[in-house]
Design a protein around this nucleic acid. Structure first.
Length: 494
RNA sequence: GGCGCAUUGGUGUAGUCGGUUAACACGCAGCCCUCUCAAGGCUGAGAUCACGGGUUCGAGUCCCGUAUGCGCUACCA
């Protein structure tokens, strides 16, 4: 039997990390088993769903490389069918019409809650005779359709692929509503019917779906459908152990945020993979192929994991391990696979030049290769990396005060510039030789010139080996920048 | 209140059939390297395995209870 799994987001907001992980796990299982990954948009919530929200979700999935085989299907397309299924259950005695008004039930619930008693619908309309039902129908009384949960000592049980044996007593399950008074079906119904009709064999969803499972199993059985397997995933919580939400946490929980902040989709997927799942050994880096190969339900953890980010910490603008993972990908992945992402980043920031794909393409690639070891996001290439590509860049005050405070640099810098200007071969080795010779001639430590040059050429106090920086930035620009930096020394000492 | 799920260092996780000093990664601190930073190498701090009972020669690992957290408890999805 072919495996069929689905990701069924409701398009209320954006694709968030929890949803993305659920989608990833579904996708992995489909790919591992040669099954199908179905995408279904659960848009039954009237106002809250917008076409734009759907597009954002699709975008996020595409970006993460989670391609679906069928869909997107829209739940609203099947509403009438869902209603019919409920009618079938009424006809077969598995469900009944309930004429109790919402207001009345609300009142009762409140009364019970006030006394801290558990409230479950008492089944008032369950015992209505067919004549009574017909009479009320004829009188035009509004009604909802409720499932008639067996009233016996039995229980609904299933073996969750993650949580193991699960069981819920019939007495603990309320006669839940499946169809509203306006005849629109509820999620609990639509979701189960769609899963059945779309041939879903494995329901892989968040742990918050556990309480729904027994009800849905009841529906499957009442309708004569085969009950699928269930695999519930632990939740992803914030550092105070609250559920992640856009309202509470803002952009950090959204996939789009990572897209914009310069994450590699593979890195995010890899990080998400490890949130709640482990291969059982020490491996942490997984290519898509390796993920597919290694993935299994047994490796899924049962406890909720925490997305470890702190608000207002710019260096750790999200979970430090996610950033670390991204940095690892940036510096370790094959350069030719990284380049397209970097190029996209340059284009997006308006720093792309056509020469980078013609006469300067080799230089561009080498420069990116030089820089990537210490960058953590793609955005770093255009922000921190700016001095390597553009002539106008900022001098970091801390760098200036640290490296350009020695007033003798006022003459040393232009002196070095003069020497370098005469070089025939502006290679890292040649520059190093010149600089070190010049330093000893002047009786200063090479480090003084090296560090000063770093600030002069990049405005920063950190970066690759300085002689590589010289070579990368080039003779003309290097000489210019050394001379230009003199005013900063003066400014500093004044 | 009810029902359910969970509980290993700050975070993510490992810990197979119960058996010596609880492992790995991130983060943090220090050292080495070095022209800086990152990387890399090394070292370190940080966990009475939520708590209390029990079973056992022996429990993070099995059983019971408690606490805490989370989820669900809607004519939301």
């Amino acid at each position: 039997m072919q495996v069929r799994v689905r990701f069924a987001p409701s398009p209320t907001g954006y694709l968030h990390v929890g949803g993305a992980r659920t989608a990833l796990f579904n996708w992995l299982y489909a790919r591992k088993t040669g099954g199908k990954f179905i995408l279904r948009i659960e848009d039954t919530d009237l106002e809250r769903s917008t076409a734009q929200a759907v597009e954002t979700i699709l975008d996020g999935l595409r970006w993460l490389g989670l391609d679906w085989d069928e869909g997107p299907f829209y739940q609203t397309a099947n509403l009438e069918l869902h209603r019919q299924k409920a009618e079938e259950m009424v006809a077969s005695g598995h469900a009944y019409r309930c004429f109790c008004s919402k207001e009345l039930l609300e009142e009762r619930r409140k009364a019970f809650e006030a006394r801290k008693l558990p409230y479950k619908y008492e089944g008032t309309c369950r015992g209505l005779s067919s004549q009574e039902v017909v009479a009320r129908l004829a009188a035009g009384h509004p009604y909802v359709i409720r499932f008639a949960v067996p009233r016996d000592e039995g229980a609904v049980s299933w073996t969750d692929l993650v949580y193991g044996e699960q069981s819920k007593q019939h007495v603990d399950i309320e006669d839940f509503v499946m169809v509203r008074a306006d005849s629109s079906p509820l999620y609990i119904l639509s979701n189960a019917v769609d899963d059945a009709l779309q041939g879903v064999t494995h329901v892989i969803r968040g742990q918050d779906g556990i309480p729904n499972t027994p009800k849905q199993i009841l529906i499957y059985k009442a309708l004569g459908y085969k009950v699928p397997e269930f695999a519930h995933l632990p939740l992803i919580l914030d550092p105070s152990r609250a559920k992640l939400s856009k309202r509470l946490h803002g952009d950090v929980v959204m996939v789009k945020f990572y897209q914009e902040r310069g994450f590699l989709p593979d890195a995010l997927a890899n990080f998400l993979l490890l949130l709640g799942w482990s291969p059982g050994d020490d491996r942490e880096f997984f290519s898509r192929e390796e993920m597919i190969e290694a993935f299994s339900f047994e490796g899924i953890n049962r406890s909720n994991s925490i997305f470890n980010f702190r608000k207002g910490d710019e260096r750790n603008f999200t979970d430090p391990k996610a950033i670390w993972m991204n940095a690892e990908y940036i510096s370790k992945m094959p350069l030719d696979r990284l380049l397209p992402f970097v190029i996209a980043e340059f284009k997006q920031k308006g720093l792309w030049r056509s020469e980078y794909e013609s006469e300067r393409s080799e230089w561009f690639a080498k420069t990116i290769d030089l820089l990537r070891a210490r960058y953590r996001t793609l955005s770093d290439f255009t922000s921190l990396g700016r001095p390597y590509f553009e002539d106008d860049f900022d001098y970091e005050p801390a760098s200036v005060s640290k490296n350009l405070k020695d007033t003798s640099l006022v003459t040393l810098l232009p002196g070095l510039a003069d020497k370098l200007e005469k070089l025939q071969d502006f290679s890292a080795e040649a520059v190093e030789a010149v600089l070190r010779t010049y330093a000893s001639q002047c009786g200063v430590k090479a480090g003084l010139l090296i560090n000063a040059a770093r600030t002069a050429l990049t405005g920063q106090s950190v970066g690759p080996g300085m002689f590589d920086v010289f070579a990368t930035i080039g003779q003309r620009r290097s000489v210019e920048r050394l001379r230009r930096a003199v005013r900063l020394v003066v400014g500093q000492s004044a």
